[in-house]
Computed example of a mutant assay.
Amino acid sequence: MKKYISLAILSVSLLGLSSCLKNKNLVLDPDKSPSVVEFSTITDNPSGSGGGYTLYARAFDIDPAGVPSQFAVNYSGPSNAPSDITVNLDVDPAAIDAYNDANGTSYSLMPASVYTLPSSVTIKSGERKAVIDVTFKTANFDLNESYILPLRIASVSSGNISSNYGTILVAVNAKNKYDGIWTSTGTMVDNTTASLTGFYPYDYQMITQSATAIAAFDPVYFGTYIHMIKSGGNVSGYGSFSPVFTFDDSGKITSVVNIYGQPAGNGRSAAIDPTGENKITSGTPGTPGCVFKVKYFLLQPGTTIRTTFNETWTYQGPRD
């Protein structure tokens, strides 16, 4: 009886193993694994996914000469490339549509006029990688647009194109000299609700809105443009409100507006308080320790001053 039970268990075990091998498509012989060509994503941190595609983000300074950047394609096989492999490149606008539909975003295709991309690269015989040199003409970016460069491996002279990383989406932003991580300190007074108080100090990502404007983005709690506050001592924020600071050539802040509109859908606007210093008071933009001081209002409703801010912002360094 024990013999029959053992044989039955062995039979079931083998059947289960066979099923696992079939379902997982396991490769038992590495030397017979398929040769795949794909984009290398080792040095980038993905910032999103959707529609079958992965999104990566890069940000560059605004430079009239253009900003060089590099991507790479890899050969993944049992050994190095047995011969030269030509990798033909193009862009795939449909991938942006799929990503936007899946995530409710509104990224747009980067115009060919603001970047240069080679039509092909070669993975040399005996190697596993080829570098793709791309130049972004950031001075020509429309900073009101959210660009994606949808890089696609169109064809290869040998091997298979990866089903996962044959196309990648790269969100590319331009950064002005004020862009970076800034620590905000200061005071705020909400005239309608005494339990709402300032959340200071706090590190914001100040993200480029134009060649001379930046807006406050919270990278930790809400992951969006917002002004952080405390509500009864708890972390909170003013919804649909984030200040956009615009500087002139001398470093003076000429305006403060709400990134969500003047007013936003909830009636909130921003306005500069002319009694403040409202300028860079020390240091050089883009250099750690640079400081600007600014006073401004949250208006709600209409021109009614709901909240007064008196803040000092200190530059810490570039954002990723």
Score class of each variant (00 low, 15 high):
residue 281 T to K: 01
residue 251 G to D: 02
residue 182 W to A: 05
residue 302 G to K: 14
residue 242 S to H: 01
residue 229 I to Y: 00
residue 279 K to P: 10
residue 266 N to P: 08
residue 244 V to I: 12
residue 182 W to I: 12
residue 267 G to S: 13
residue 224 T to D: 09
residue 244 V to H: 08
residue 257 V to K: 03
residue 210 S to Y: 08
residue 180 G to M: 01
residue 231 S to D: 10
residue 259 I to E: 03
residue 220 V to F: 08
residue 304 T to R: 02
residue 251 G to M: 08
residue 306 R to P: 03
residue 249 D to I: 13
residue 225 Y to K: 09
residue 203 D to M: 03
residue 293 K to F: 08
residue 177 K to R: 04
residue 289 G to V: 04
residue 249 D to R: 08
residue 292 F to E: 02
residue 230 K to S: 13
residue 270 A to W: 00
residue 247 F to E: 00
residue 260 Y to E: 12
residue 223 G to N: 12
residue 213 A to N: 08
residue 180 G to Q: 03
residue 282 S to D: 05
residue 298 L to Q: 08
residue 255 S to Y: 02
residue 247 F to P: 00
residue 293 K to P: 03
residue 244 V to Q: 01
residue 210 S to R: 06
residue 188 M to G: 10
residue 181 I to D: 15
residue 290 C to I: 03
residue 241 F to M: 10
residue 232 G to T: 12
residue 306 R to E: 14
residue 270 A to F: 03
residue 212 T to W: 11
residue 185 T to Y: 07
residue 268 R to E: 11
residue 198 G to S: 15
residue 180 G to C: 10
residue 198 G to L: 06
residue 196 L to D: 12
residue 244 V to G: 07
residue 193 T to L: 14
residue 272 I to K: 01
residue 267 G to H: 11
residue 210 S to N: 01
residue 263 P to V: 01
residue 217 F to A: 04
residue 189 V to S: 08
residue 308 T to V: 07
residue 246 T to K: 06
residue 275 T to N: 14
residue 212 T to F: 11
residue 233 G to W: 14
residue 279 K to H: 04
residue 209 Q to W: 02
residue 299 L to C: 06
residue 302 G to T: 15
residue 250 S to P: 00
residue 215 A to C: 04
residue 213 A to D: 13
residue 203 D to N: 09
residue 298 L to F: 10
residue 176 N to G: 06
residue 222 F to L: 15
residue 281 T to M: 08
residue 177 K to M: 05
residue 255 S to G: 05
residue 202 Y to W: 08
residue 218 D to C: 13
residue 285 P to R: 06
residue 260 Y to A: 09
residue 210 S to W: 03
residue 300 Q to D: 15
residue 192 T to G: 04
residue 287 T to W: 05
residue 208 T to K: 11
residue 211 A to K: 00
residue 293 K to Y: 05
residue 193 T to S: 11
residue 260 Y to V: 15
residue 197 T to H: 11
residue 214 I to H: 11
residue 244 V to E: 10
residue 223 G to L: 04
residue 247 F to D: 01
residue 221 Y to L: 15
residue 175 K to F: 11
residue 281 T to Y: 00
residue 251 G to S: 06
residue 190 D to A: 10
residue 280 I to D: 03
residue 206 M to R: 13
residue 290 C to W: 00
residue 294 V to M: 06
residue 184 S to Y: 04
residue 232 G to N: 07
residue 177 K to E: 01
residue 250 S to N: 07
residue 258 N to I: 02
residue 271 A to Y: 03
residue 195 S to H: 09
residue 236 S to Q: 00
residue 302 G to A: 15
residue 308 T to E: 10
residue 272 I to V: 04
residue 191 N to H: 13
residue 231 S to M: 09
residue 279 K to L: 03
residue 218 D to I: 14
residue 232 G to P: 04
residue 264 A to P: 07
residue 301 P to G: 10
residue 260 Y to M: 12
residue 175 K to A: 11
residue 251 G to V: 14
residue 211 A to N: 05
residue 203 D to V: 04
residue 275 T to H: 03
residue 281 T to R: 04
residue 242 S to A: 13
residue 243 P to D: 02
residue 301 P to F: 10
residue 236 S to G: 05
residue 185 T to L: 05
residue 233 G to S: 12
residue 303 T to S: 15
